[in-house]
Design a protein around this nucleic acid. Sequence first.
DNA 1: ACAGTAACCTGTTTGC
DNA 2: TGCAAACAGGTTACTG
Length: 269
Amino acid sequence: MPELPEVETTRRGIAPHLLGQVIRGAIVRQPRLRWPVPDLQSLLGGQRVQTVERRAKYLLLGFTRGTLIIHLGMSGSLRILPADSPPRPHDHVDLLFGRHCLRLHDPRRFGAMLWAEGDPLAHPRLRGLGPEPLSATFDGACLHQAARGRRVAIKSLLMDGKVVVGVGNIYATEALFRAGILPNRAAARVSRARLDRLAGEVKAVLGQAIERGGTTLRDFLNESGEPGYFAQELFVYGRAGEPCKRCGTPILTRQIGQRASAFCPKCQR
DNA sequence: ACAGTAACCTGTTTGC
DNA sequence: TGCAAACAGGTTACTG
């Protein structure tokens, strides 16, 4: 479900409901996510939410005495619901506030809830991550440096969190189409000028997706249970066999690094 | 250091 | 129609 735009959409949606609120309790129905969920009841009880931030695809809820780090994995979502809403299957964690709760739903359980005391950016899961794609530190020069001597597919490089964070399969696929670059081209064999273009397209596609409230393919819903509207603007992702929106050539797919990669053989070189 | 693969899970779609 | 295989938005950990 979530790449950076969906996580950012979630962050913007939940922040107004959480900021300044005091947690009165937590319910962990299923502690076995990607890593064991800590005892949130005793860690969080009585603390106030001071910040709701994002780093890569991690949401960071800042409390008085530490930070709750949340990752949504492949299938996770967060909703704001009345505190007494009956849980459905895969509703693993509730954070209880006054009249409402923040509920984590995650069928595949690839998500995570971690606790960090001190600087959350120093947590082992966040330390060593690359630059934020929408920040000024991410640009063509940055990609050029990372691509030096690398024979991996440019798409794999783009999805490598040490190079740049937050770019998953959908948006890597789309950014490469917009930049006119074949996804399986060796990273070191993409010219500097085209890397400049690619960095720009990554920023553009992520920015537009955030404006539309994210991409809903089958099950992404925002904090209120509404879908995002970026799917209709996808050029190649999920369109194998359909005509390219630019030139009409049928869209092809191939596996790159175990992920389906759609591309237009005419528009991308 | 690098590149490729398996693994963690469950639900949905595809193909015979 | 029924069942099994393939596939899905992410990330880590292991292999050679």
